[in-house]
Design a binder for these strands. Structure first.
Length: 268
DNA sequence: GCACCTGGTGATTTATCTTG
DNA sequence: CAAGATAAATCACCAGGTGC
């Protein structure tokens, strides 16, 4: 890639990282795992086959990287239908901002505080639910230390935020995409007919939409959280582009039916 | 451009399924 | 229900890509 761009590999890496936020190798790894998430959620392909299809020659590497980045093993991810179970997020519905948001945390801790702000969309016509999570790294991995789900633009609050330095990541998907969160792939359909072996499978993999399609994202931080001191952080959602690395952590099911089941009122 | 850390490999272990 | 087969996860090591 550096040769193609007529840069030294060192300079190319720096430019790539400045533009995308990730080094080329990590960006590639993220794209592979995002593709694997799509295949796990929407096909019956074996984990071994999927690991090979997305570019890993070792199932072991694939399994460990997937678990580390997504927050659950490939098998569990498939079992939960491509979503992080609400129960795994310590769900406590309707406790924030006049009952229009739900927030929670992944692990117990000592000193806790609240991060508040306003969520808005830059593009017209977007008013759907959004997931807001706090992660320890610039690039989200695993499960958030604290999180909130809002059913549309407006005030939000993330409660029980532990002391530390966190990076805020928000993600939303258009309603008609059928799936919430970072998947971007078709909702249980296009990949269902995939079969093992042969060119048909490769054609099917290539036919998946780009990882950014239909997604809106926002990133804020680093946010320094100290005991008892509330923080303000407005979240401005913008359309995801091809230069944004895929969002790897498994996100909760934010389709309308699932949100209703968690105590949300429909937007609007 | 060098040192070191990250990611890939493959062996091994564990979990799950199948069959008798 | 036990044994064998198969799939998936874990682990230690190493090469090369990345950070400084």
């Amino acid at each position: 890639m550096a040769r193609t761009a007529m840069y030294s590999k060192f300079h190319f890496t720096r430019i790539f990282q400045r533009v995308t936020g990730l080094t080329p190798g990590r960006f590639l790894s993220a794209v592979r795992l995002e593709k694997a998430k799509q295949l796990l959620a929407a096909t019956q392909l074996m984990v071994t086959d999927i690991s090979h299809l997305v570019g890993y020659s070792s199932v072991g590497t694939f399994s460990s990287r997937f678990t580390y980045n997504v927050g659950m093993s490939p098998t569990l991810y498939r079992r939960f239908g491509g979503f992080l179970p609400w129960s795994a997020l310590d769900s406590r519905p309707a406790i924030a901002e006049a009952g229009r948001a739900s927030s929670g945390r992944a692990a117990p801790g000592r000193s806790r505080t609240v991060i508040r702000g306003n969520l808005s969309y830059t593009e017209p016509g977007w008013d759907g639910p959004a997931f807001i999570g706090l992660f320890g790294e610039l690039v989200p991995r695993g499960q958030p230390v604290a999180w909130s789900v809002v059913d549309g633009p407006g005030p939000y609050a993330i409660e029980d935020v532990p002391e530390g330095v966190w990076h805020l990541m928000a993600c939303a998907q258009q309603h008609d995409q059928g799936r919430a969160g970072a998947h971007g792939g078709p909702a249980n359909g296009a990949g269902r007919s995939a079969h093992r072996g042969g060119h048909a499978m490769f054609h099917e993999v290539r036919s998946w939409p780009p990882h950014h399609q239909g997604l809106s994202v926002a990133a804020e931080g680093p946010i320094v959280v100290r005991p008892g001191l509330g923080r303000l952080a407005d979240v401005r959602m913008r359309p995801m582009t091809l230069l944004d690395p895929p969002i790897l952590p498994a996100l909760p099911d934010m389709r309308p039916g699932a949100l209703l089941a968690q105590g949300f009122r429909p937007a609007g």
